[in-house]
Design a binder for these strands. Structure first.
Lengths: 237, 237
DNA sequence: ACCTGAACACCGTTCAAGT
DNA sequence: ACCTGAACACCGTTCAAGT
């Protein structure tokens, strides 16, 4: 764990500090939050419910986390810290892909990540492992002949694509049942009139959901890497 | 306007319908919502505030929109419908880029779009203009030699990138002030110890925010298009 | 057919005191 | 130093009646 409000042991021997002793710690809060998510689902993780789980006053939490968003970011940082660091390929373009795929897979497995995925400087706030991944990506991009400045831009492109994929997929997984209400039974997406103006959509017909359900993240990511850094052979810039 | 619950005029001559007359309509609701956003800001657009603005009971709104999310999607549909349809280049790859840039620019200008950008089938639910844009993209991809099926995959890649860019940028615009609280004055991003392990990040130093603030959407989009469909010359597949 | 108040079941966060 | 109940200022949505 990276930071510590009161390094060392639990609430025990007072080390020259004065005042009322703490009833909880950052560690206890994060553990309780993960337990709450596991037992009741992430939608139920509220500041109030978390305080109840810890058996402390609701407002006490605000001494340990800045706000709800801060709590979620710290929580994801905790999960990411336990992530295995991937084996990195020698080829820099492939190394970029593997690093981003690791981030993607880790975050996509956390459904509550979607809530805070877009906060400013998200990756930088998660802790050592994710900062390490950013460094890996930047270094690999520089290895292909780019400046560090350009590497930051490349990383952001990759992050936009990755965050977008996770966010869009996180929603479509749930919304499957709702579509029935929008399109009444038996009704196709387009009538005959529209089919003339929208031939390609008409050709796809009701196949869209099946095609959209495919996991094509890795393929798209590699296409983006190739587009940004050139194909695996020459050194781009 | 695409749909109409009671085609024709306002609440006037009853056309053989029985029961209590409506106090509002889809049109009135959308107009009032846009007015509310303009005067009080989009954060203040709540079901309750909107009903108050219209001078009707809160629960009456649920006869005209399914829920808050549905209201926002319809609202964005309204804005997108007023969008100018862009002039389309002859080159299919450039046509794809222009079409997506049009969507991007329109949605990026609507800060409240971020709330519902990731709902399932978002583009398809917005109405004629956005469906037309999807058709343009699909047709252009097919023109490069892809199957319609593959075109759907390509569109989704482009949509992930576009949605991610809009969502991440929507947040970072607001969060600038908050960073000061995370990094106390004068403190750099990394100490000397970390600089050795993270040389590329160290080289960038405090330049990150400036670089990240650049608008590089178009460049990244073109890179993705090139990576997916090949460079402007040959026909990919 | 359509409208509605009241109620349900909650939120995050701040304040001003405690201990 | 740290903790806390009460309060502030709200939410979206459903129910069971109205008219």
């Amino acid at each position: 764990m990276a930071t510590s409000t009161s390094a060392g042991g639990q609430t025990g021997a007072p080390r020259g500090r004065t005042g009322r002793p703490p009833v909880t710690s950052r560690e206890q809060i994060l553990v309780a939050a993960l337990r709450l998510i596991e037992t009741r689902g992430w939608q139920r993780l509220t500041i109030r419910a978390l305080a109840a789980e810890l058996g402390i006053g609701t407002t006490t939490l605000y001494h340990h986390v800045r706000d709800r968003e801060d709590l979620l970011v710290q929580l994801i940082g905790e999960v990411v810290a336990q992530m295995d660091r991937p084996e990195l390929p020698a080829d820099p373009r492939e190394r970029v892909a593997v690093a981003m795929m690791t981030v993607h897979d880790t975050l996509a497995a956390i459904p509550w990540a979607a809530e805070v995925l877009t906060v400013d400087g998200f990756m930088g706030r998660l802790g050592d492992t994710s900062v390490w991944i950013v460094e890996v990506v930047l270094a690999a991009v520089v290895e292909t002949g780019s400046t560090p400045e350009r590497a930051v831009e490349v990383f952001r492109h990759l992050w936009y694509y990755t965050a977008g994929e996770i966010l869009v997929r996180a929603r479509s997984a749930v919304g499957t049942l709702d579509r029935d209400r929008l399109l009444p039974e038996g009704q196709t997406l387009f009538g005959a009139r529209e089919a003339a103006a929208l031939p390609t959509l008409a050709a796809i017909g009701d196949q869209w959901p099946q095609i959209a359900a495919r996991d094509t993240y890795a393929e798209g990511l590699r296409a983006l890497v190739a587009g940004l850094l050139g194909p695996a052979a020459g050194a781009g810039g």
